[in-house]
Write a protein that binds this DNA or RNA. Sequence first.
DNA 1: GCAAATTAATGATTTATTCAAG
DNA 2: CTTGAATAAATCATTAATTTGC
Lengths: 191, 191
Amino acid sequence: MEDHGGQEDAGGSRERNNEGVRSRWTPKPEQILILESIFNSGMVNPPKDETVRIRKLLEKFGSVGDANVFYWFQNRRSRSRRRQRQQIHEAAATTTSHATATQQQQQQHGYYQTTNESGGGGSGGGGAIHQYEMSGSSSSSGGGGGGGDFVNEHLCSFSGEIGFPGIYNGVHKWGANRSRQGPDRHERNVW
Amino acid sequence: MEDHGGQEDAGGSRERNNEGVRSRWTPKPEQILILESIFNSGMVNPPKDETVRIRKLLEKFGSVGDANVFYWFQNRRSRSRRRQRQQIHEAAATTTSHATATQQQQQQHGYYQTTNESGGGGSGGGGAIHQYEMSGSSSSSGGGGGGGDFVNEHLCSFSGEIGFPGIYNGVHKWGANRSRQGPDRHERNVW
DNA sequence: GCAAATTAATGATTTATTCAAG
DNA sequence: CTTGAATAAATCATTAATTTGC
């Protein structure tokens, strides 16, 4: 049997390196699915709060840290753009027409952005919402997940969807949101 | 309680933004002194462990977060470089000779770098040591300090008074271990 | 069929650029 | 204008695919 999911340490929980090689996180297929789903839904740059939620969600499938999630999104954005540009350049080189599709990305540092992945199925699509989500002194504390949690919605989709071998979809309730009691000087800093 | 006789909130502890305006950290003169001292000593890109120590040290003079310290060093490096380049360009424009001082920085992403500040007396010179420093022992808590000594050394200078820096360059012997050991999967992540 | 060598993907760092508060 | 904060681009380093030789 190919327990292709057998390696539990693949999640990166083992970074023990007596030598000098730092092991990096290797996301599991399920994790990648979740991440891509979120990304494709338009949240290409989740704020810290959301990132933490995502991490907690991913953690159910393997060890992962907040930074890993952050890196993942960062790299995804960067590479998405690069490929888009390459394709543009490529097309420009191929097409003899003068139609230079100069799709200049306007660097709107908004968090949600319409992902125009070329190859993607374009399932999500959706919302270019501007949710800056600042430290929520405004009522975000509510323990139980507070208000509209983006991640929660996605979780719904996954509860009973992904047919993973050996994964029981239980109802997760990460209500106990680890509120940051520290004096946050900057909510959305680089961590 | 020391009354620094000045803006108390300047430390940045107040970043409450009910509106959405983030107030940014305003380092106190003492803090700047410490930071510059460390920077001038050759540590231009302190690893996380050291950053935390620095933060704790700075915190004695006002609220400050790890990220603030990180940003400060980042901006300092950037600014330093840019100015250097400008000066080079400027000099090149002035000098009629063909000696184009193409000081191509070879992107040695080392943490310690010879600070070639133009104005400085060029004393330091230190060592472009590659020290990845991966701590590992989380015993860096409290002021007790632990293994690291860099910040502590600086602290010595400050213990009692900020005796203006002549910035004496002592012998730096930081680590010098080029082995990149990293127990944690992402010790030096972006926070 | 396997294991070393090579290449392709991609996670993690660092640098350059930009935005905005003071 | 200065400079802290944030992000995107570029780069490095490690892991997975793959090729190659036996």
